[in-house]
Computed example of a mutant assay.
Amino acid sequence: MRVLITGRHGQVSRELQRALGSEAELLVLGHEQLDLADGEAVRRQVRELRPDLLINAAAHTAVDQAESEPELAYAINATAPGILAEEASALRVPLIHYSTDYVFDGHKATPYCEDDATGPLGVYGSSKLAGEQAIRVCGGQHLILRTSWVYSLHGRNFLLTMQRLLQEREELRVVADQVGAPTWAGTIARTTVELIRRWRDGQPGAWGTYHLTGLGETSWFGFAEAIAAHLQAQGRTCARLTPIASSEYPTPAQRPANSRLDCSRLQHEWRIELPDWREALSECLSSPR
Score class of each variant (00 low, 15 high):
residue 1 M to T: 13
residue 2 R to E: 11
residue 3 V to Q: 03
residue 6 T to H: 01
residue 6 T to C: 03
residue 9 H to N: 15
residue 11 Q to K: 13
residue 16 L to A: 12
residue 19 A to F: 03
residue 19 A to S: 14
residue 19 A to I: 08
residue 21 G to T: 09
residue 22 S to H: 14
residue 23 E to K: 10
residue 26 L to G: 05
residue 29 L to E: 08
residue 37 A to R: 10
residue 39 G to Y: 04
residue 40 E to K: 14
residue 44 R to T: 13
residue 48 E to P: 03
residue 52 D to H: 15
residue 55 I to P: 04
residue 56 N to P: 03
residue 59 A to Y: 00
residue 60 H to Q: 13
residue 60 H to W: 13
residue 64 D to G: 01
residue 64 D to Y: 02
residue 65 Q to Y: 08
residue 67 E to L: 08
residue 71 E to N: 10
residue 74 Y to D: 03
residue 74 Y to V: 05
residue 75 A to G: 11
residue 77 N to W: 05
residue 78 A to P: 03
residue 86 E to G: 10
residue 96 I to G: 01
residue 96 I to D: 03
residue 97 H to R: 09
residue 98 Y to T: 05
residue 100 T to Y: 05
residue 100 T to D: 06
residue 102 Y to G: 00
residue 104 F to S: 07
residue 106 G to T: 08
residue 107 H to Y: 12
residue 111 P to N: 02
residue 113 C to H: 15
residue 117 A to I: 09
residue 124 Y to L: 10
residue 128 K to I: 07
residue 134 A to K: 01
residue 136 R to H: 12
residue 138 C to T: 14
residue 139 G to P: 08
residue 142 H to Y: 15
residue 143 L to P: 06
residue 144 I to G: 04
residue 146 R to S: 11
residue 149 W to V: 08
residue 150 V to G: 02
residue 151 Y to H: 14
residue 154 H to Q: 12
residue 156 R to H: 13
residue 157 N to R: 08
residue 158 F to H: 05
residue 162 M to E: 00
residue 162 M to V: 13
residue 163 Q to L: 15
residue 166 L to H: 09
residue 172 L to P: 03
residue 174 V to N: 00
residue 183 T to A: 07
residue 186 G to S: 09
residue 192 T to E: 04
residue 193 V to I: 07
residue 197 R to A: 11
residue 197 R to Y: 10
residue 201 D to T: 14
residue 201 D to C: 12
residue 202 G to T: 10
residue 202 G to E: 09
residue 202 G to M: 11
residue 210 Y to N: 07
residue 211 H to E: 08
residue 212 L to S: 05
residue 225 E to L: 14
residue 227 I to R: 01
residue 229 A to D: 14
residue 230 H to M: 10
residue 232 Q to F: 09
residue 236 R to M: 12
residue 237 T to G: 09
residue 239 A to M: 02
residue 243 P to I: 06
residue 246 S to G: 09
residue 252 P to M: 08
residue 252 P to E: 07
residue 257 A to T: 11
residue 258 N to P: 06
residue 264 S to H: 12
residue 269 E to A: 12
residue 270 W to M: 13
residue 274 L to D: 02
residue 276 D to T: 04
residue 278 R to C: 06
residue 279 E to I: 11
residue 279 E to G: 06
residue 280 A to N: 09
residue 280 A to K: 01
residue 285 L to T: 01
residue 289 R to P: 01
